[in-house]
Design a protein around this nucleic acid. Structure first.
Lengths: 196, 196
DNA sequence: CAAATTATGGACCATATGGTACATATGCGA
DNA sequence: TCGCATATGTACCATATGGTCCATAATTTG
């Protein structure tokens, strides 16, 4: 494909994509302007259109990148965790990390909230990303079941969806300004549902 | 105040506000344009500025109106319900109602997701609205505790926050396209946490 | 009826928006 | 060295945006 014919890129595509992703993450899809993107990606408008095709295509790649990174991080966390249950606990408690400043939530869930079912391609990306997160969480639940921390007869698929949903709600509460004490309380109730 | 001197209004302020609220609910704050609002509120731009002062002020009144209506609906539901527990169940199951078409979520939570802590006045309105919802849900939890459906030693305040958070997550899942079966599964897990 | 008071219609505005066109620059291979 | 292929900078564009201004219309009060 890219046989390095012609003039070479003057920007780092990977870094540019990463920067764009963070911009979209902070401001949302429509609220992020081309101007914002150019400023943060370190390239000119021509180059952006040449390399990424436009705002929506760029955004879709950012969602994909986000999902890749987040899913990989989850898998790694699960691998490293002493138990499935501990992983799930840490996963939820990670919300407290950035709760103080200006929490950005999750790019995927933010997009679900912003676009819903408008813009079908994006809705598709969102659904697919959620499914990826869910799959990792299901693996965590199944591990916890094998380890005796979650009753084996419970539906791991549903519990994983529950965790996705709970995380989403939690991050929204953080964005709305909930204090750490409240968030911790909510988390303990969420976790309680797994032992019910 | 309004001693009816001067030319009378040609539009119904109440109906206009209601229409604006639904518009913001469907499209979000920034995505809703003046053009959208004028089309749906049945007044001219001059009148909108005269009567409501501009987009942000109008939006804040819409949030207030939404919170009034939703809180009143919750209180009524709780009053009419055969038990606190049943009310909470119905409250969560209400998400399934509009899950088929194009769910709009909750205007307040959508706004939390869209604006976060930017625009402090709006963030303030959001926080205040959430607190109102939480208060009603806390009353429901306390009733369920008196009725023996939730253990009395549990923190009703936290459980109420948990329900707000869970509802928010659930609505986001619906917006993301989750099917009814999945949503029902999540709801049953959410409810399970109350009995834990 | 006239004055006071409020509402409305429509023109106008500065700026922002996402996107395109095209000339020019920069590298690789023959 | 020359041409090909790709990248970049600049100018440009149509439209949308939230908002203001002001002349005019429709009431009530004196």
């Amino acid at each position: 494909m890219n046989t390095s014919i012609g003039r070479p890129l003057e920007f780092d595509p990977n870094a540019a994509l990463e920067a764009a992703m963070h911009q979209f993450w902070s401001k949302g899809y429509k609220h992020t302007t081309m101007h914002d993107l150019l400023g943060v990606m370190n390239l000119s408008k021509s180059s952006l259109y040449q390399a990424f095709g436009g705002k929506q295509q760029l955004f879709r790649r950012c969602i994909g990148r986000y999902a890749d990174q987040f899913a990989a991080q989850l898998r790694q966390g699960l691998t490293d965790a002493p138990s499935g249950r501990r992983f799930i606990e840490d996963f939820l408690h990670s919300v407290l990390k950035d709760a103080g400043g200006a929490p950005r939530g999750c790019l995927v869930m933010n997009t679900a909230s912003e676009i819903g079912q408008g813009e079908p391609e994006i809705a598709e990306d969102v659904a697919h990303s959620i499914e990826r997160f869910r799959a990792v969480l299901q693996a965590a639940v199944e591990r916890a079941q094998r380890e005796g921390d979650i009753a084996p007869e419970r539906d791991a698929r549903i519990l994983a969806s529950y965790l996705v949903s709970s995380m989403s709600g939690l991050k929204t509460q953080a964005k709305a300004g909930a204090d750490a004490r409240t968030l911790k309380g909510i988390i303990s109730v969420i976790l309680g549902a797994l032992s019910a």
